[in-house]
């Protein structure tokens, strides 16, 4: 019975989506999109238009997204508290190849993440992607040695400091150009397609990258060390 209902639901959904296909493909840009496409580069100086939209035109939304991520990580950290005194199954230590490889690759991976978020206004990617790559570097260390001690105080400090800097950058826009998170007039726009261009966008993306990276790294550490459910306690 359940399968039949599911099948009928899938077929209905397919029909509805199929009807929606022509609606979802407009043939010309709307007025807002046309303004972005025509003036986006001239107004913000970034060669990646997506970045200009995410960080400048819709910068306030991005601030909200970062806040949502912070709240979810804080919630996970609250729910998955470390429980001391619980005897869980000891992991088999990783082999020497994995440990050496993790130590070798940690620096290039983190450097690559930094490259992604610093070049957010020039190449695809930006703060979120770069932060995820940085967190993946930390994850590599954790995979090689589960009980590696991460500096949680430092991660928290980095996270709060970067969130604070984001708001500060927005206030700088308010002070210099008259609107929150404004770009023009705060920092020089520079010449097109150079690293030091696009005004305040690279600064904000660096801040987002550091914030996302430290948050995700802390989340992974908390999840790995949370006490297991019944599957693990049964082996006590």
């Amino acid at each position: 019975m359940k399968q039949i209902v599911a099948l009928v639901a899938v077929v209905l959904l397919a029909v509805v989506l199929w009807r929606l296909v022509p609606l979802a493909a407009p043939t010309q840009l709307g007025p807002v999109a046309r303004h972005y496409a025509e003036w986006g580069v001239a107004e913000n100086g970034g060669s990646n238009l997506v970045t200009s939209i995410v960080v400048n035109y819709r910068g306030f939304d991005t601030l909200g997204e970062v806040t949502v991520l912070f709240l979810s990580v804080a919630g996970a950290g609250f729910v998955l508290r470390r429980r001391h005194g619980l005897v869980v199954h000891e992991p088999i230590p990783a082999s020497e190849i994995v440990q050496t490889g993790a130590r070798l690759l940690f620096a290039p991976v983190v450097l690559f993440g930094a490259y992604i978020f610093v070049h957010g206004h020039l190449t695809p990617g930006g703060g979120f992607q770069g932060g995820a790559v940085v967190a993946s570097g930390v994850l590599l260390l954790l995979l090689a040695d589960r009980d590696r001690h991460l500096p949680h105080g430092f991660l928290g400090l980095l996270e709060s400091l970067s969130g604070f800097s984001y708001v500060l950058a927005g206030l700088a826009g308010l002070w210099a150009a008259g609107s929150f998170l404004a770009n023009r007039g705060v920092l020089p726009l520079g010449s097109w397609n150079r690293l030091l261009s696009a005004g305040i966008i690279p600064v904000i993306y660096m801040v987002i990258g550091l914030k996302v990276g430290s948050e995700l790294a802390a989340l992974l550490d908390v999840m790995m060390h949370a006490a297991g459910g019944d599957g693990e306690e049964a082996h006590r």
Binding site: I92, S95, G101, L104, L105, P108
Partner: peptide, 20 residues
Amino acid sequence: LFVLMTNPISSHALARGAYR
């Protein structure tokens, strides 16, 4: 270069983990 560095590590770990 990255493929050359990362892929052997994961393959080695996978074989070892599967055996265990």
